[in-house]
Design a protein around this nucleic acid. Structure first.
Lengths: 158, 158
DNA sequence: AATGAAAGCTCTCAACT
DNA sequence: AGTTGAGAGCTTTCATT
């Protein structure tokens, strides 16, 4: 888990795979000036060392009937470890919660929540906030446009 | 695009690929009760119809020296189309901006920003906010823990 | 220690049943 | 939808630097 140094070749490979992990090694090799086997070996190492955490399919929400996204700030009643840990577990197991960040500032958690419709979101707020005595306050922002959505990490040199 | 109906088999396939898009078709088939070729045909269709938008490698930020995440709320001076559109373009081309949402409520945009360190974040705020006369106000929350990070979409129901 | 070339193998894809 | 075979892409081997 420490940061093993990545040379420019690894970075170039990663920047391709972050956009499309099905890019074939031959194509990457042609771009970065490496043989197919060399690229494959580097990708294998990047996976083994955890630099590539996972490779996932990104589903277009609307195509599966999910049409609403919310940004929700959550303030807990008390910042006790037990309370925070319980909330963590709850959001981890809730499929409507796409992302959850524990943050400084006025809110304790910031959630990105996806639902089919408003009714489903209200059901989410009930089970997550109203049925939880430890939640002091929450604020909802409705997403009108998902301008940029990805998990791409900035790499040196692009 | 209207939501083409997905049967439970497609949903089962998607739920696997959302976790690991390198799962081989044979393994998925064994789980959902379908032949290898049938699974591959369905995956191909899911890609062609845009249900699977893309397949990407997720890079562990710390392993490439990126150690800080911020949630930034941005309020624009005026909600003129031109101003909003210019801001959209700016964040789309900025590699530090991992995500950007246009939202209702007190902020106009919510950004997820990733940087190597605080200095890089300050440089980001300069180029994005201080050098932009149309930004009225912004609020920064520092992420202490990325509790849940993914682009997984809930598939129940459809 | 990492590379390139080529052999060997796995998975995918399209044709056919 | 299932079966099959050809081809694409990945992995291993080995000689080289």
């Amino acid at each position: 888990m420490p940061a093993a140094e990545l040379d420019p070749l690894d970075q170039a490979i990663l920047s391709r795979l972050q956009v499309d992990c099905r890019t074939i090694a031959e194509s990457i090799g042609a771009q970065v000036g490496l043989s197919t086997a060399a690229v494959q070996r580097r990708i294998k190492r990047l996976r083994a060392t955890g630099v590539i955490a996972k490779e996932v399919a990104v589903v277009e929400p609307r195509s599966v009937g999910v049409d609403m996204t919310f940004i929700v700030g959550v303030e807990m009643e008390r910042e006790r470890i037990e309370v925070l840990e319980a909330f963590r577990k709850q959001v981890l197991s809730d499929p409507a919660v796409q992302q959850c960040y524990y943050v400084t500032g006025s809110a304790d958690f910031v959630l990105v929540v996806m639902c089919r419709d408003m009714a489903e979101f209200e059901e989410f707020t009930r089970r997550t906030f109203f049925d939880n005595g430890e939640v002091r306050h929450f604020t909802t922002s409705v997403v009108m446009d998902r301008v940029k959505v990805g998990l791409t990490v900035p790499l040196n040199g692009g």
